[in-house]
């Protein structure tokens, strides 16, 4: 008798217990392994949101690709945005494998994006009106992304952990590219410094929101608890935000920039950063598609998706949402 047939004879509860034992022992779950439905659903939600955020994230930066202010910067930002698209592709492939048994494919992901069912990261709903924003996005948004993604490098789901390994390595280059833009502006003319300070002011709240609300303040963070139990992620939203402060607040200050929150400081007693909480009802508005630039970005993607329908049909006349 093979191991496989033995496993098939187990009850659902026994399978579930076996699954928990595996992830507790640090084993990786692979696409064809047995997994509980809510684990699959959690992964689909997380990974498709992550993947589509990479793709939507290309749009604010793409605005600055042709305008980058030198040949060197043009080349660097082209490479950077291409990487983001590549991450999106990699992650959607992982999500597609998980969705296959449910009879869904990439077309469904795109349609869910257009209908608003599938959300993308709050930061990519924001406007990016100056070159300073291109710098802040690459330095601090990517910096925040490295922090939140690194905690999933040990994710119990093998394909996600492996994709993240590559993604994080590339994000480090992006943050360096961003830092280099920031340094040039910070050491530049008074106008350039002002441009940079304006961008920081514009992005600060969005950066705080990036990590999501604290556990007790928002019911939707029950996903966080579940994802931690399933060892998809290792840290809470607030732990990640604190890590971000520890890494970046001193660097921001050392550039002579002002953080638009007079209260922010490190409290030695608590061993924590104290800061002004963003308005979480605004966060909800943003991620549900009512942010400053949500409609325009979605429209851009939808218009191009529709314009190119004939191409996709020409490549594969039978492909459509299942």
């Amino acid at each position: 008798m093979t191991i496989e047939t033995t496993f098939d004879r187990l009850t659902e509860e026994e399978k579930y217990e076996h699954f928990l034992n595996r992830i507790d022992a640090g084993e990786k779950i692979e696409p064809n392994d047995w997994m509980p439905d809510d684990y699959r659903q959690s992964l689909i939600r997380l990974i498709s949101m992550h993947g589509i955020s990479e793709i939507m994230g290309a749009l604010p930066e793409k605005e600055w690709v042709p305008k980058a202010p030198s040949l060197h910067r043009k080349l660097a930002i082209m490479a950077k945005v291409q990487d983001e698209m590549g991450h999106g592709q990699l992650l959607l492939r992982v999500a597609e494998d998980l969705m296959e048994p449910l009879g869904k494919n990439r077309e469904d992901i795109m349609q869910d994006l257009f209908s608003g069912r599938l959300k993308f990261h709050n930061v990519f709903h924001m406007k990016a009106p100056t070159w300073g924003d291109a710098g802040i996005i690459a330095w601090l948004v990517d910096g925040a992304a490295i922090i939140s993604q690194s905690m999933m490098l040990n994710s119990s789901y093998g394909p996600y952990a492996r994709a993240l390994k590559r993604i994080c390595a590339e994000e480090v280059f992006h943050a360096q590219h961003g830092e280099s833009i920031i340094m040039a502006l910070a050491e530049g003319t008074p106008e350039q410094r002002e441009l940079l300070q304006d961008s920081l002011n514009r992005w600060w709240t969005a950066l705080l929101m990036f990590f999501g609300p604290k556990a007790k303040e928002n019911a939707s963070t029950s996903h966080v608890d579940k994802n931690m139990r399933y060892k998809i992620r290792e840290k809470t939203n607030e732990e990640l935000r604190q890590e971000f402060f520890t890494k970046y607040v001193p660097r921001i200050w050392s550039l002579g920039l002002t953080i638009p929150d007079e209260t922010i400081h490190f409290d030695e007693e608590q061993g924590l950063w104290v800061y002004q909480d963003p308005d979480w009802s605004e966060f909800k508005q943003i991620v549900t598609g009512n942010g400053p630039q949500s409609k325009e970005r979605l429209e851009l993607r939808e218009v191009s998706y529709e314009n190119n329908r004939w191409v996709r049909e020409a490549l594969n006349p039978t492909a459509k949402a299942i």
Partner: peptide, 18 residues
């Protein structure tokens, strides 16, 4: 580079960008 993010599919976006 104006096509970035707007190509017919994601794989092409990556290739064309390269």
């Amino acid at each position: 580079s104006e096509w970035l993010g707007l190509a017919p599919h994601i794989e092409e976006d990556v290739a064309y960008s390269s």
